[in-house]
Each structure stands twice: as structure tokens, then as C-alpha cells.
Amino acid sequence: MSEVLAWPATFVVAPFIEFGFMRRALIGCMALALGGGPVGVFLLLRRMSLIGDALSHAVLPGAAIGFLIAGLSLPAMSAGGLVAGLLTAALAGIVTRHSVLREDASFAAFYLISLALGVLLVSTRGSNVDLMHVLFGSVLAVDDAALLLVAAIATVTLLAVAAIYRPLVVESFDPDFLAAMGERGAVYHLALVGLVVLNLVAGFLALGTLMAVGLMMLPAAAARLWGRQVWSMAAIASAIGCVSGAAGLLVSYHADLPSGPSIILTAGAFYVISLVFGPNGGVLSRRPALRHRVA
């Protein structure tokens, strides 16, 4: 009986006890979830989910330039990705203000340009292995320096969200009311975009540019179906992100699968479960209302 009870614990705990790279990957995923969860919720509430995806690709050219200058150097690639992401956000804002294009269209255009330019830059000097590393990352290869950077970004994100929480919430639901109070909503909008870029740079280091947004938006989308207040959705999103990271790492370890896709697919599984069973707008929760409407 004791052996039967001990087997699940061994299955779950042993990889993280035995291997340092698994522990670092777990801590990195948790840091990404803690910082990305609240940011993803605000993007979801403001209907900017796809803008997060666009910005995740916008960091690629800067990271590629950092790679060309210094190779797989953490400071160079991080700084390049941060500058490129902020520059893309600024350019998209300028285009939106001075043309007929909406913000989502501007981000979509810059996203395609950034992705193609980044892949071209890496391909000119790097190998296919380097390109795959930049695009898809390797959470199992996260070293102490990258872990410290990811943790620092998560800390800055949580402190910043706490500092501007109320205006962000008001601006997400009623920007006209915020303007009537004398607050400049554009400042908080830009602050949120900056936090998005910061967290995408952190996610890029572990999951690569193509999957960095996954651990930000999938838990947020799932949390929307469970929570009713913004703070509860943010907490649920971070919790789902943490569990998805741990479960995805275990799946990749025991099934010998790539870690990044395993983590994102695990988060996707939580989203599908929430879509069906979520009490705040899930499929099953809406069936009585639909039957009442038909009757």
C-alpha cells in the first residue's frame, strides 16, 4: 500500500529533486506565470490578446541583432529584444495616430515584418540549431543568470501592476470616466504595453519568440472563465500558469518530449477544460440559460 502511495509522489517530485536543470526550469516557469498572468488578464479585458502575440514576434529582430553581435549572450539578446519590442509598440502607436489604420492592424503589419527580419538576420550568421533556439527557446537550458533576469522582470511587473492597478482597471472598462477624472489613459496604456514587452523578453529567454506569449494568454483566457473580479482572474491566471509549467515539464521529462510545446499544450488543456466547465461563461454553465431562452 505504501508503495502504491509513494509512486505518484516519486513520479512528480523525483525529477525536480534529482536534476538541477529541472528545478531551474520550474522556477523560471513559475516566475513567468506570476508576472505574465496579470498582464495577460489586462490584455484580454482590453481585447488586445493578438497584440501580445504581435509583440512576441517584435522582439525577434532585436534579439537577432544581439545574437549577431555577441552570439547567444543573455544581456545582448535581452537588451536587443527589449529595444525592438518597445520600438515596435511606439511605431504602431504613431501609425495608428497619423493614419486610418487601427492599432491591431498596425501591430499585425509590424509583427510580420519583424518575424521575417528576425529569421533572416539569424539565418545569415547562425545555424539551424541557433534559429530553432531563438524561435522556440529551451526552458531546460535556463541558467542562473537568465533565471535571475526572469525573476527580476516578474518582480518589477507585480510591483508596477500593484502601483497602477486601479487606473488600469478603470481604463480597461471605462476610459472616458478615467479621462473625466483628469487622468491620462494613454500613460497607463503605454505602461501596460511596456510590461507586456518586458514579460515577452523574459518568456523569449525560456520558451522562444514563437511560444513566449502562450504562457501569458492561455492561463488568462482560462481564468476569465473562472473569476469575476479582475484581481481574482489575475490570481487564477498565475496559478494556472504555475501548474501548467510544472505539469508540462513533467510530461516532457517522462514522455521525452520538447519542454516548451509541452508546457504550452498543458496550458491549452487547462483552457479547454475551463471552456467546458468554467462557471463564468463556460459551455456547461450557459446551457440552462440557453434552454430558458429557447423555451
Rank of each mutant, 00 (worst) to 15 (best):
P288R: 06
R102C: 07
F136K: 02
M217V: 15
G214I: 11
S123Q: 12
V196R: 07
G281R: 06
S244H: 06
I27E: 08
W226I: 13
S244E: 05
L198W: 09
V13T: 08
I51E: 05
L101K: 02
P15L: 04
R23Q: 03
G185T: 04
T155Q: 02
L218W: 02
M217K: 06
A14F: 11
A267N: 04
A84C: 12
V196D: 09
W7G: 01
L205C: 04
R102N: 11
I273T: 03
P279L: 11
S106I: 14
C29T: 14
A146G: 15
M1L: 04
S127V: 07
A239C: 10
E171Y: 10
S123K: 14
W231V: 13
D144I: 03
A246K: 00
F19L: 08
G241C: 10
V230L: 09
G241Q: 07
G185E: 06
V170Y: 04
A84I: 12
I236Y: 06
R228M: 12
P258H: 09
L115H: 01
A152H: 11
A289K: 09
H57W: 07
M1W: 08
F270Q: 00
G36R: 01
V251D: 05
A191M: 14
G85L: 08
P61F: 13
S106W: 08
G52H: 07
F136L: 14
N199I: 10
V122A: 01
P175K: 13
V100A: 13
G203A: 09
A14L: 12
A179K: 09
M233T: 09
L158V: 10
G40S: 08
V201M: 05
R125F: 11
A141R: 10
V12I: 15
S114K: 01
L115A: 05
V39G: 02
T88Y: 10
A220C: 00
L115D: 02
V139N: 05
L215C: 13
L200S: 03
V39K: 04
S127K: 06
A247E: 08
L275A: 08
M1Q: 07
S114P: 10
V119L: 14
S138D: 15
G227K: 13
S238C: 05
I273G: 07
Q229E: 13
V100L: 03
L68A: 14
A186D: 09
H98F: 13
L198K: 02
A220H: 10
A179R: 11
V13Q: 07
A255F: 15
L45T: 06
S99C: 07
P38F: 01
T266F: 10
L147N: 04
I27G: 02
A31W: 02
A180R: 07
I153L: 15
M216A: 03
F177N: 01
W7R: 12
R291P: 06
V201S: 09
A269M: 12
A223G: 10
P288A: 13
V213T: 08
F11A: 13
W7K: 12
M217I: 13
S285I: 03
E183Q: 09
Y111R: 10
G62I: 09
L195F: 06
L101V: 11
R166D: 14
G28D: 03
L87D: 03
L178C: 04
A146R: 13
V83K: 04
H292E: 15
S285L: 05
F110R: 00
L275P: 00
V41Q: 06
G85E: 11
A54L: 02
V129Q: 03
L168E: 14
R287L: 15
